[in-house]
Design a protein around this nucleic acid. Structure first.
Lengths: 221, 221
DNA sequence: TAGATTGTTAATCGATTAACAATC
DNA sequence: TAGATTGTTAATCGATTAACAATC
């Protein structure tokens, strides 16, 4: 794959979805698929799928289509799922515990190597067989384990101080569940935000402004 | 606000962010703001902000700007935060418990009125002062409480059957944490997806493809 | 070979930005 | 009134779709 420059975010955000569907097809025993078939399953145009894939290289065969297993592997490689970036999680509250327990980090390019909190009642508790460590010990942990990414499940108010501490330790990549905007202060940090509040408000808008036919008040049980 | 038709998703997805920033300004005691000032804080162009707001009406005063409190209220109203849609949550696993405990549903247009699971060891446990109920009892619950939205924190494999059950009961709105695509079978359902796996994979791509200067291997502790 | 389907270029569509007249 | 800033129209930019030649 020689091209790959200035790929737009629109394209990038579709890749995980392609990857997911292709892996499902693989599990279902499908060996070969055309862009038209795939477009039906994904609800996109065949043209868009071909355009997207050709940002990274020509993975298909003219007149034949794409080999499912090969294409899945290519996209996995493009995403970088083989990297297993060493990851720490900050905040062992409800959300942090859920994320630690729920996510298959290993299949998604990361390896969870430590969970940190500063509340005494949380330190020492176990999540997914991993003991929650005291945030105070992070510098020592860091020297030995050299984490590359941090998941932030801490309150908005605590994020700035935490990033001020992690960034100089070489942790420049963040999966951020707070609404604090890390890139304001650290424009070079690589940040993926999960804004659950915004997502819920978007749903609220869509419900409130759905065509009349779908309005809840019209519904009968 | 007379206009409001065919608002693009791009605009809608920016509204929660405007709402969030305006509420913060309100808390900070700011009474007045211009589109230019706001654009600086949000990292958007002033033009875009004015365009976005004018999809819904003219909320500013020429030569003066926008009154923070008033604009926040207007956007809240556009989003529909006052609706308090009656909400049930399915799946009291790690993620479901975290979402139930973590989200301020009341401030975001929803009211959580029930949590359901079918695992005996979960039924009867308490989350946020609310007892987890047996999924088997849902029809009865529904007759009395008439829920309008469902949060789905159940495994992908269980979603289809659950929606098959909920949709005919009049629940057409979903906050979906699984990767099952509800709109395939129910095109009229109003669905907001939270795809945590896709988000993490996107981060993986961004880390793997960041400019050399940011690559983790170059970092010194 | 004929049929199918890609890779890629060109056309269209939509979203963002710029400009400026209206007006507070 | 003069200065500022909106609301809105026009220009630009980017993303999606359509078309088709290349080729398996």
């Amino acid at each position: 794959m020689p091209k790959r420059e200035n790929i737009s975010m629109s394209v990038i955000r579709r890749l995980p979805r392609y990857y997911r569907f292709l892996n499902q097809l693989k599990r279902d025993g499908v060996t070969r698929i055309s862009s038209t078939e795939l477009s039906g399953k994904l609800g996109l145009t065949a043209s868009q799928i071909r355009q997207d894939l050709n940002c990274f290289g020509g993975f298909g065969q003219q007149g034949y289509g794409y080999i499912v297993e090969q294409l899945a592997a290519e996209i996995g490689h493009i995403l970088g799922v083989e990297h297993n970036y060493r990851t720490v999680l900050f905040g062992a509250g409800n959300l942090g515990r859920a994320i630690a327990a729920h996510m298959n980090f290993e299949q998604l390019g990361f390896e969870l190597i430590g969970i940190f909190d500063d509340a005494p009642q949380k330190i020492g508790t176990v999540i997914r067989g991993m003991e929650v460590l005291n945030t105070a010990c992070f510098e020592n942990f860091c020297k030995e384990k050299k984490p590359e990414m941090a998941v932030l499940c801490i309150p908005r108010t605590a994020v700035e101080a935490t990033v001020d501490r992690l960034y100089p330790l070489g942790i420049h990549n963040y999966w951020n569940f707070s609404h604090y905007d890390i890139n304001m202060k650290y424009p070079n940090a690589v940040v993926e935000n999960v804004h659950l509040n915004d997502s819920l408000l978007t749903l609220c808008y869509c419900i409130s402004n759905a065509p009349e036919a779908q309005k809840p008040q019209k519904v009968q049980i």
